[in-house]
């Protein structure tokens, strides 16, 4: 993935700019390591590395570790792991939702489910979501029902944002063609 990735300037600039954020994008365009003519933008980093700018704060180093495990033998490894994460986390969040509605309050059960969800977040490096899981567990430890409910809403919100961002990330990678291939886009 260390070969140059070519982006079609007029096809991808808007999408990529929207994805990584306008501030980041305008800074990037000023950087000397970007060489562009009116048609093309030559990015001397892998496309996935560049697109990860848009996920900064949402994902940590572990996501890069997972990316490093992708090879010719398993070219879709990252996407498969992420798909598995959303399947797992969806199931666990559904379990938590049901447990939160039950009486009497079972803080141990809530904590067990949330620890599993936190573990899933750790495995793909979903740092913001993991932090909210930890807040939930803190509230659990204090027997704070309101705190748990509030934290769970935040967990759900972070989950939804992460899903949307990762879907965009993989969509842009797919549009660029084979991962890391230094091919010019069809005009």
């Amino acid at each position: 993935m260390d070969r140059y990735a070519f982006l079609s300037f007029y096809k991808c600039t808007h999408q990529v700019g929207k994805f990584v954020g306008s501030d980041t994008w305008s800074n990037v365009l000023r950087e000397s390591w970007f060489f562009n003519n009116w048609k093309e933008l030559l990015v001397p980093v892998s496309l996935s590395t560049f697109l990860l700018l848009g996920l900064k704060g949402y994902l940590d180093e572990q996501f890069c570790q997972v990316e490093d495990l992708q090879d010719e033998a398993s070219p879709n490894f990252v996407e498969e792991v992420v798909t598995l994460f959303f399947k797992d986390s969806g199931r666990l969040m559904s379990n938590i939702e049901q447990a939160l509605e039950k009486y009497p309050r079972d803080f141990n059960r809530w904590d067990t489910y949330m620890q599993q969800l936190k573990g899933s977040c750790s495995s793909i490096g979903a740092s913001r979501m993991k932090n909210e899981c930890m807040s939930f567990r803190d509230s659990c430890g204090q027997g704070n029902v309101e705190g748990c409910m509030r934290s769970f809403q935040k967990v759900k919100r972070e989950h939804a944002v992460l899903r949307q961002k990762l879907e965009s990330y993989f969509q842009l990678l797919r549009q660029a063609g084979p991962a890391g291939a230094a091919t010019r886009p069809v005009m």
Binding site: Q65, L69, F77, V81, L84, S120, S123, I124
Partner: peptide, 14 residues
């Protein structure tokens, strides 16, 4: 957890 098994298996191989 299946996701942890998948990542650990790949990491072991690597």
């Amino acid at each position: 957890e299946e996701i942890n098994r998948v990542v650990a298996r790949a990491a072991l191989k690597a």
